[in-house]
Amino acid sequence: MITDVDIALVGGGGAASLVLAALGRAGVDGLRVAIVDPVHKRGQDRTWAFWGEPGTFLDPLLSASWDEVDVVTPARRRVLRLAPLRYAMLRSAPLYELAAEAEKRLDAVRVTAPAGAVQDDGERVTVTGPDGVPLVRAGWVLDSRPRKPERPGLTTWLQHFRGWWLEADRATFEPGRAVLMDFRTPQPERGISFGYVLPVSDRFALIEYTEFSPATLSGDAYDEALRAYAGLLGLDLRALRVREVEDGVIPMTDGPFVSRPSPRVVRLGTAGGATRPSTGYTFSAMARQADDIARALADGRPPVPAPPYPARHLWMDAVQLRALDRGLTDGVAFFDRLFDRNPADRVLRFLDGTTTWREDLMLMASSPTLPMTRAAFEHAVHRVRR
């Protein structure tokens, strides 16, 4: 017999886990919930790094947090003091455990099967399996499965990376400060590369090599880049153990993601536009979506979150991506200038989508005027042709 619920979460990763946790905190009573996913997420399968003010429900779940970070270029090392914000690292296992606790309190139904089509008749939504057999019928569906933009953008890049969790037998890392971006890595012909370091303790840290560029690398190329970056940091890999490896590919595009494809279907996470086009950052926007949904349901309103980012920020991102893709501005110089001419918290709040109009104008004024103007013109022409 088909399961009938109020809310069906299609996909059980980070976005769905944040929604479950938010529902648990909101104390929504009598809500019938189902989760449709072929895998019940557990353990450490990924790491999220994000910034925000301390004092949230996430604090007990964090592996580490930092009040200051380094941004490094070949010319200088800049120390950014982030107050009133902080930079934080959350590994997936504690969030999955919190979501499992909320799932149990809500008496949610788990359908351990892949979802296929989502059919919305305007009053109820039916989620079928790949074979077309109905799995769940719901009043609302929150779908966090990855998908491509509705149509291609003018610019499509990727944030792609590999990270090593390194363990040492003696004090090796500086746990009091993280490296946010280290641009001393060799720069690709088309794109930007950087390394970063997230230390959990003086003997355990994540070091990662990241590129913003149109295409991914081979696995050997990531490993080679990581070995080179470890050398830049003065690490002797012979004295360290690689405990875990993390890989990822995140879209960076000005192509539009449709967050509400039908009246009772809402998309979350990257599919719902939570990934910032200019950087690939996603976590903070997913958390806002989850909080919006929980508040709406607690108030008896439809579970429709606010747009993850203001329209003007998406336009600014599109212009930046165009300028980088066309080689109109140097990527390392762009980010160096951005942090040099703005307080760190303004830049980070912009990347989170929470700056004001006035702050956005100040950020635009700090960017290279002629290249960005040309990129804005090309983007406008593209939009008109579309």
Rank of each mutant, 00 (worst) to 15 (best):
V5H: 12
D6P: 08
A8Y: 00
G14V: 11
G24C: 13
R25M: 02
G27H: 04
V28Y: 02
L31Q: 11
R32I: 02
V33K: 01
V33W: 01
A34Y: 01
V39D: 04
H40D: 06
R42F: 06
R46A: 13
R46G: 07
G55P: 05
S65F: 13
W66F: 10
V71F: 04
P74F: 00
R78Q: 12
R81P: 06
R86C: 12
Y87I: 02
L90H: 00
E97V: 09
A99F: 04
K104D: 13
R105E: 09
A115N: 05
A117I: 02
V136T: 07
V136Q: 01
V136A: 04
K148V: 08
P149I: 12
G153M: 05
H160I: 13
H160V: 08
F161Q: 09
W165N: 02
E167V: 09
E167L: 06
E167R: 15
T172K: 06
P175W: 02
V179W: 03
F194D: 01
R203W: 01
Y209V: 13
Y209E: 06
T210N: 10
E211Q: 15
A215Q: 15
A221P: 00
A228C: 08
L235V: 08
L237M: 10
R238S: 12
L240I: 01
L240G: 04
R243C: 03
T253E: 13
D254G: 10
V258C: 10
S259E: 03
P261W: 09
R267L: 05
T270D: 07
T270I: 14
A271Q: 03
R276I: 14
M286I: 15
A287N: 10
I293M: 07
A298K: 14
P308G: 06
A311Q: 09
W315V: 15
W315P: 00
R322K: 15
R326S: 14
V332S: 12
L338Y: 07
F339R: 03
D352K: 04
T355D: 05
W357C: 00
D360G: 11
M364S: 08
M364V: 14
S366N: 13
P368G: 11
T369Y: 05
P371Y: 05
M372R: 13
R374W: 12
A375H: 10
E378H: 05
V381M: 14
H382I: 09
H382Y: 15
R383L: 10
V384P: 11
R385N: 04
